[in-house]
Every structure is written in C-alpha cells, then in structure tokens.
Design a protein around this nucleic acid. Structure first.
Lengths: 235, 235
DNA sequence: CCCGGTCTTTGCGGAATCTTGACGATGCCC
DNA sequence: GGGCATCGTCAAGATTCCGCAAAGACCGGG
C-alpha cells in the first residue's frame, strides 16, 4: 500500500507525539504543524491525503482554518478537539470539516474515521491538477483559479455566483434542487429563500450571455436548475 | 418543494418518531424502516440521499446491513447506536458506514453530520446512481434529469405530474393506492382528495399519449393506479 | 470617510401550475 | 332499469412560481 501523507495539527506536543506515533505505526507518512498558519502552509505545500486538525490553536481559530482550507482545497479534514460544545461541532462541520472527534478519543476509532476520510478522497480524484476544469458545452469552470469562461472568454463572477455555477457544473445536465443549491451556496440555514436563486440565476444568465433561444442555465419549475450544453440538447 | 429523501432505520418507535419529526421540520422527505430487511428493500427502492441506520435491529445485524448495502450502493450511511463499544464503531466504519453517532446524541449534531454526508454525495460523481432511469414499457422516467420521455421523445410534465408518474414507475405494474399517491405527491394531510387523482391521471394520459385501446396508466377502481407496459399485458 | 463591489430585499408583470366545480360516462348491485 | 358510487374530462379562477429590475445594506480598501 502506497503510504498516505497525513498532516496532524495540534498545539500540544504530547498529543502530537502520540498521534504521530500511532499513525506512523500504521504506515502513514506523518507531517505536523502546531499553528493555524502552519496548517494552511503545509496543506498547500504537501497536499496531504487528510488533515487532522485540533481546533484549539494559538493563532487562528480552528473553524476559521477549516474555512480557509476549503476555499481552495477539498482535502478531507478530521477535526479533533477537547471542546465538545454542540454549536462548535456544527459550525466546524458546516464550514467544511468532514468529521469531528471529541477528546478523549479512542485511537482505533480515530483511525477508523481516518480510513473513512481516505476512502472518500479515493472515490473523489481531487487534489491534483487534473480535472480542475469542468466543462459543460462552451462553459468552462476552473476550480483552481475560481474562474469561469465562455468560449475562452473570461467571465467575472462574484463568489456566490461562482459557487452557484460550480455546483451545477459538477453535475452536467442534471437537475440540482433549489434546496441543495441554497444549502451549498448560502449555508444550511437557508432552506427556502428561493428569491436568491431567481436573482442569481438572472445575473448568471446575463453574464454567461444566455439568450432565451439558446440557454445554458435551465429552470425546472418548482424543482431546481440545470446547466446544459445548448448544442447537444439531451433527453 | 422537492427535497432530499432520507431513510431512517430504527426499531424503537419513539426514536423513529422523534427523528422523523426533526428531519421533516428541516424539510427533508423522510421514509422509515424498522428492520434490516426493510432497510435493504427501501434503500433499493427509494434510492434515498442518505440512510440513517440504528445498529440494534431485530432481524439482521446492523453491521451486516451496512455491508450488504455497500455491495451495490454508495449511498451515504450514518450509523446511530446506543452501543458505544469501540470495536463495533470501527467495524461499522470499515464496512462502509460514513459516520457514526452514539446515543444519546444531539439533534443539531446529527443534522450537521447529515449535511456532511449529503455534501459528500453531491461532490462525488456517484457514477452508479445515474442508473436512476426507471423504465416501464416505452416510458422512461429519468430521476436525475427530472425528465419523462416516451419512446425517446421528451414529455413536459409539471412537478406534481412528475411525482405522480415517478411513484408509479418505482413499482412497475403494481397498484399504488390512492392514499399513497396523495400523501406522496400532495402531502400527508391530503388523505382523500381523490378528485386530484382523476384530474392528474387524465392530464398525464394525455401527455403520455395514452389511448383507450393502448393504455399505460391503468385505473383500479376504488383502489388506485398502476403503470404498465402495454406490450406485455399482465393481469 | 468615501467608493466600488457584493449581497440582500422588495416589487411587479407574466407565465405556469394548481384547485375547484360542473357534467357526463361507466360499471355494479338490487 | 334505477340508484349509487366511482371515474374521466373540461375549463375557469386562484394561486404559486419565475424572470427581471432597482434600491438599500453591508463591507473592505484606498
């Protein structure tokens, strides 16, 4: 088995040592960081297979670290903390953490959860430079540079507009429900604020150059939206 | 408004009720099962977006249910149990569960973990799921594209019409009772508004091109409707 | 402090969809 | 055949949903 690289972030040397040892014994290649800034740097530099992140860091708040990493990377993040407060868990999970283990934790359990995270990543060939550009017809979504272009011409989208298009482009042609879009772009508490969708769909259409006769962003009444290649009209 | 379908499996009615209520309040469409066999059947039938699975089931062991589901489906599974034993957690996670919450659990946390599971499902191509095209004779119901077609020709259905056809297509040839259709399409409080059924059945027949001599949507007087392949006429 | 970009909120016309009531047809039991 | 229950069809409101525009709120940088 090719050794997976794991980044462990914790400010307590004792825990860091214990965790590293346990992981190395299992055959993983372990890297460590003790600050939020270090976590961000190492994540970008090493592109680890998974990040184990303690929330109690001296410099940046752990949740914030999570959020920052998620801005450019989909590396699995397993949060590890002594703080068992519910709202903090929920917060961390909602900004992009994939799992949350409360200290004191059992090492076998942490390892099992780590395997789950790695399994997810395996199914999802992300991280590397390859499929960083989604294409649907003449629309290209560059995930790395957060840039959308139509026929090679760059289009300026706001962050929320980009997230909207990204989610649709990840499932070419398929219907994404209103609720799904709202939760992915705006957050879990926006369940039925469908007026946002109408406003943004309109703006996106304008920027993409959609015309009524040749549309890329289609509405499925009462259900959601889908992004299609106007050339190959399917179904 | 269509939402994600969640399957909740637990043998304790109290928990089942509480969970269902919490999830419904959040806008999910909740289905339930109380046995391992029921869980397997419903998972195959409904293709839910996520399965919440209690391990303490009367018939099949929960871990085994997990493993069986994973043989053909990648639907996210969130395991839920009173048993906090480590090895059981590890076992469940290793046979394919995506998360593991120990009772007593906090509802907000479970909801957050559910959102994580749904997020994972959304990010991954979930290749196999694209087999979500139900076929009954020459009628094809494409769940992903939210599109019904007859002999390859797309048919425009309204949301309620589509939901009507979808239910029937999920049980090819079988009779679906009026009450079931009403509750699934219109909601739990519509128990006996059978007039809707007649109106919609009529419209659907018109759009599907049903003729009196060659019908796809059959009426079972006083009971319900069923969708059949007019070629292989069965009784 | 101002300014530009972004997000949120509001409103409206028009279209699509749903609801409702009416009427006739059909089939069944007596 | 008559009475009764159920079904099919139609069409007119009533309601919801969508696209679009515009104005105010918010925020970070200069």
């Amino acid at each position: 088995m090719p050794a997976e690289h794991i980044l462990v972030v914790d400010d307590e040397p004792a825990i860091l040592r214990a965790l590293s040892a346990a992981l190395r014994a299992r055959g993983y290649v372990v890297h460590t960081a003790t600050t939020g800034q270090g976590a961000l740097d190492q994540t970008a530099l090493l592109e680890p297979a998974t990040v184990v992140l303690d929330l109690g860091l001296p410099d940046i708040d752990g949740v914030e670290v999570c959020r920052l990493i998620r801005q450019w990377s989909e590396v699995p993040i397993v949060v590890l903390t002594a703080d068992g407060a519910d709202d903090r868990k929920v917060l961390a999970l909602d900004v992009g953490a994939d799992d949350y283990v409360t200290k004191p934790f059992s090492t076998p359990e942490l390892l099992a959860r780590l395997r789950v995270a790695l399994r997810h990543r395996l199914r999802n060939p992300t991280g590397t430079v390859d499929a960083a550009v989604l294409r649907v017809g003449d629309v290209a979504v560059d995930l790395g540079y957060h840039q959308v272009s139509v026929n090679g011409t760059a289009v300026n989208l706001t962050p929320k507009e980009f997230a909207f298009v990204e989610i649709l482009a990840r499932h070419p042609g398929r219907v994404i429900t209103q609720r799904t879009i709202l939760q992915e772009v705006w957050g879990p508490e926006y369940g039925d604020e469908t007026q946002y969708l109408r406003v943004y769909a309109s703006q996106i259409r304008k920027k993409l150059g959609d015309t009524p006769d040749r549309r890329r962003l289609l509405t499925v009444a009462g259900v959601g939206y889908r992004l299609v290649d106007p050339g190959t009209e399917d179904t």
